[in-house]
Nucleic acid binder design. Structure first.
Lengths: 344, 344
DNA sequence: CCGTCGGTTGGAAACGTTTCCAGCCGATCG
DNA sequence: CGATCGGCTGGAAACGTTTCCAACCGACGG
């Protein structure tokens, strides 16, 4: 393998022209047609492949962008990754995936590691945010697009959604179904999504005209099915013991919701007849689950795509003002809240 | 953002030493303790970050490796990606994800694009393989590790499993449950996994002592839930019409299996009581599905990890002989084949 | 017919790093 | 006490590319 690389000087020699001319000919800058033909022929004969490192060094661009994410196992991030990959590949960029770890400390380390001219820009969707991370991101020697909470007052390009409002939609939906004893199954409160979704729930059930009878919240260890199962067991058992079992669980994401459905079934409860369950993120897994999962779509693909486009546009126009893209949450009603009767 | 980069000459100047000494001091090669201290101090004061492109150009290594995959949406590949990422990150490498497209033509293009010194090595799990692709991979100017069919007679490092045998295990399992009318739901036959799994099924049901009554196969459009749903509808309907409905469906992967379960339910069939269903790949989604899915594990994480380790070891020792790692398939029995009675 | 201009070309510099090479110094050994 | 050796250092070259600059050519206009 790995026959010795053929370099541009070799191509130039073969074509009998100077190095500079060869470069111009291949990049289509001010070279005569005859020159272009000669050089291209020589390049083809030799099997010339331009070297990315030499080119990057000179150009000060790598045509790589990074997507940094806490947990690549989460389907939401995979969806974003797919969308980002699609957009950037089309424009000739490559995608580097970087795992941040769940703490801000390890995220900062990762950002520093990336700040070596290795990538031209960064899309980051941080689970946890603090001042140090914001500082680090501002200091980064490359454009950054944040997916998630728009960092207060910061001049970052950002893509955000209103997941608090999304939780509100889910609450309104189950109330509309006549459910009155609501449980909220959340992930860690010190995460950006956990905090926002809790706020959304508290707001929705705190309204003057709230018609529900009881509310209860449970915080799972993280945003996974297993944690959801454990959390929902506690949530359901607690309310059952209290004499008035829950008739609806609003979960902070689809994985938690699936955990909740499994927990409900363990107790012999039917979904949705006995307990309606809603998720959030509208992931593929929820769409194929049985029952199919009512979920608040935060349009992860769209957010990924928007973030990628924001980043590319900034690479083209570095000086422009920071831009923010908002994506509206939208409730997708499916079987997990739809009684056989079909009341909506 | 983007304050002007500080370069090594600047650090050297600040420390009052030569460029070469500064480099040696930072890389820990033959520099006096005093020198190291001075240079590190200067570097810290200036916030020096070594430039990856300059370093790569000189070193002829980028410390990046690529993972090329047809469809990053498939959970199997996500699992591999996670494992690979973990291994390489630990050794100081970064992971670039490359999407190949499903044809060999687009895969070849992608390999060529990567052959620009941008990555030090490549892990590829091709869906379809032909002679041209093999040629291209051999000619690639970097080490390649193949996950999947070991390319006949080729000197690639490879990680493979015997998915044909895995299908055999699934068939044996449902036969052991007393099922006698088997359907096989496969993906496209011109793919590497499709071909192998079909072979496995045909072999398993073609044995002299095969006790089953009937067999039937259906080829879905691709390896997705939707395609599985469509394919399984046809498969089930066809056999129902024939008077003897299937009592087991062996699917070529978990997504197809989930499609099959949905199709069975549409027809009012219970899983597993009326129809037992098995999948393959043992993905997360199958583990949380209701019913949980009996599946043949091909140990995707393990394969990813092995591939990454193979690649890193080759980077350290370029001349060594090609190595192959085999991973045994293993059946994971869950609810989708387990009658309430619990017969195994 | 000569000057000028636009289009092309060759040569050289530059991007930021690592490493080779030669020279220096102090120390050790004969 | 002198020669030699080892450890460090400074300087320079090299990795492969793009682009600047100066020079050249033919053609066109005055």
């Amino acid at each position: 393998m790995a026959s010795a690389r053929v370099t541009l000087p070799q191509v130039a020699a073969r074509a009998g022209v100077s190095l500079g001319s060869a470069s111009r000919a291949l990049n289509g800058n001010g070279a005569s047609p005859a020159m272009v033909a000669r050089v291209q022929a020589a390049a083809r004969e030799l099997g010339y492949q331009p070297d990315a490192t030499g080119r990057s060094l000179r150009l000060r661009r790598t045509f790589q962008i990074a997507f940094a994410v806490a947990d690549i196992g989460n389907p939401v991030y995979v969806e974003m990754l797919t969308a980002i990959q699609e957009v950037v590949a089309e424009r000739g960029y490559r995608l580097v995936v970087a795992t941040t770890g769940s703490t801000t400390g390890s995220t900062i380390e990762m950002v520093q590691g990336l700040s070596s001219g290795l990538v031209d820009g960064l899309v980051i969707s941080p689970l946890r945010v603090d001042a140090a991370l914001v500082t680090e991101l501002r200091a980064a020697s490359m454009p950054v697009v944040v997916i998630g909470r728009t960092l207060a007052g910061e001049a970052f390009d950002a893509v955000s959604t209103d997941s608090a409002r999304g939780i509100g939609q889910a609450v309104a939906h189950v109330l509309g179904l006549g459910r009155r004893r609501l449980g909220f199954l959340n992930g860690p409160l010190d995460t950006t999504p956990g905090e926002a979704r809790q706020r959304g729930f508290d707001l929705a059930v705190g309204r003057e005209d709230y018609p529900g009878d009881s509310v209860d919240s449970e915080v799972a260890e993280d945003f996974t099915v297993t944690a959801g199962l454990v959390g929902a067991r506690a949530l359901l058992a607690r309310n059952l013991a209290r004499g008035a079992g829950l008739d609806a669980i609003v979960a902070a994401n689809d994985l938690l919701a699936i955990g909740a459905i499994k927990a409900a079934r363990e107790l012999g409860l039917r979904v949705p007849q006995d307990v309606a369950v809603t998720g959030m993120d509208d992931t593929e897994i929820g769409k194929v689950f049985a029952p199919t999962l009512t979920s608040v779509s935060l349009r992860s693909s769209e957010r990924g795509r928007a973030a990628a486009e924001l980043l590319l546009s900034r690479l083209e126009e570095p000086g422009r003002d920071a831009r923010r893209v908002f994506v509206e949450p939208a409730l997708e009603v499916r079987e997990s809240t739809l009684d056989a009767g079909g009341a909506a």
